[in-house]
Simulated scan of single mutants.
Amino acid sequence: MDRFLSIEAFVRVAQTQSFAEAARQLRLSRAVVTTRVQQLEEVLGDALFHRTTRTVRLSEMGQAFYRDCLELVTRTNDLVDQMREVRGTPAGLLRVHALTGFMLGHAASLLREFQERYPDIVLDLFVSDAVIDPVKQGFDVALQIFKPVSDELVSRRLFPVRRVFCASSEYLLKHGSPRMPRDLFGHRLGLYSGYPTRDRWTFHRAGEDSVTLDLKPVLMSNSVHLLRDYVCEHAGIVCLPTLVAAEGLCSGRLRIVLPDYQLSAFWLSAVYARTLRGAFKLRLFIESLGASFSGGEPPWDKALIEQGLTPPQLLED
């Protein structure tokens, strides 16, 4: 019995609450993970989990054992990474869950630069707009606009995510341009379904009280890229993050609707477990992303600000 491998299997099952998912993340068979946990239970003389056909929960013994085991696994992996750093060759697998709107069209060059610098680090990158707990789902870090879902997670801000309502010139020529936020009720709207504010849309204008509306879209989607394609088909007015809309706005293919009003911005953040704050590969990855956006505005917003299409000040809730 390799005690460390058994402890690692125990920790992963505790995080995922599933032997099958733990096996998938560790790239082992379920039988191997089950055997390793059982061997650990035999050494301890007690069950670490309460198992049913549907659930896997930590026993009293398992709860007492888990936190120290998590710290042990994290610290051991970090020490191995540090030794690789001494040799100049950080290596191993880094699992990343990332927001679709950022990854498509903006992240490839950042990933290339990171891998050119650290060629032995393998990135397993899952792209989705789902809000996750990276610990429970076996990721080292999640790049998302939502706040951490538990107190065991921390976050580091990377860059602001501004939003604008926009439409094509053809649509506005045919249907007219809204002058006030309430004018949006007279238009076909496409809205992103994954914002933390859900159905609450608050419009801010200098020197005036803010206006909050419950808008009624004809199209809701968790894909900002689908909404961009929809607006480019002259189908309606949509709200897009500037990281997706900037190219169309700068080229003139799209126009900002209600340019005198601002929506609050969110932040794309790296969310990860408190216990992984010193993990070497993770630290390198987050520092690399942070350095890419440390010079002020992200490039897509800088282009919009330079053309006077969006105000330089950032509005946050």
Rank of each mutant, 00 (worst) to 15 (best):
I132S: 03
T197S: 15
L158I: 13
A291L: 00
S29D: 13
F49A: 03
R255C: 02
A107P: 02
P160G: 03
V135Y: 04
C232I: 13
V37D: 01
F102I: 08
T16S: 15
M61F: 10
T52P: 07
A206F: 11
D151R: 05
N222S: 15
Q262E: 12
A167Y: 08
R24W: 01
G62W: 07
R157L: 13
D129C: 02
K174T: 04
G296H: 08
D140K: 03
G62S: 12
L93T: 09
S210I: 01
R3M: 15
E233Y: 07
L94Y: 06
A142F: 10
A265D: 06
R253S: 02
E85H: 07
R24G: 04
G248E: 13
I7E: 08
Q313G: 01
S292P: 03
G296C: 03
N77W: 05
T76R: 15
L276E: 14
G186Q: 08
E208C: 08
P298E: 07
G105A: 10
Q38H: 13
D129A: 03
L189Y: 07
C239V: 09
Q137M: 14
L315M: 01
E21N: 10
F4T: 00
V244M: 11
P181I: 05
L263W: 02
R179Q: 15
E287M: 04
E170N: 13
S29V: 05
H187D: 11
G295M: 04
D129I: 02
R253T: 01
V32M: 00
A64K: 15
A130E: 15
E85V: 08
T89V: 13
P90E: 01
F4Y: 14
D78I: 04
I132L: 04
H234W: 09
L99I: 06
R182W: 14
T275D: 12
L110Q: 04
D151W: 02
A9V: 12
M83V: 10
Y192M: 05
S109W: 04
V33L: 04
L99S: 03
D140P: 02
S6M: 04
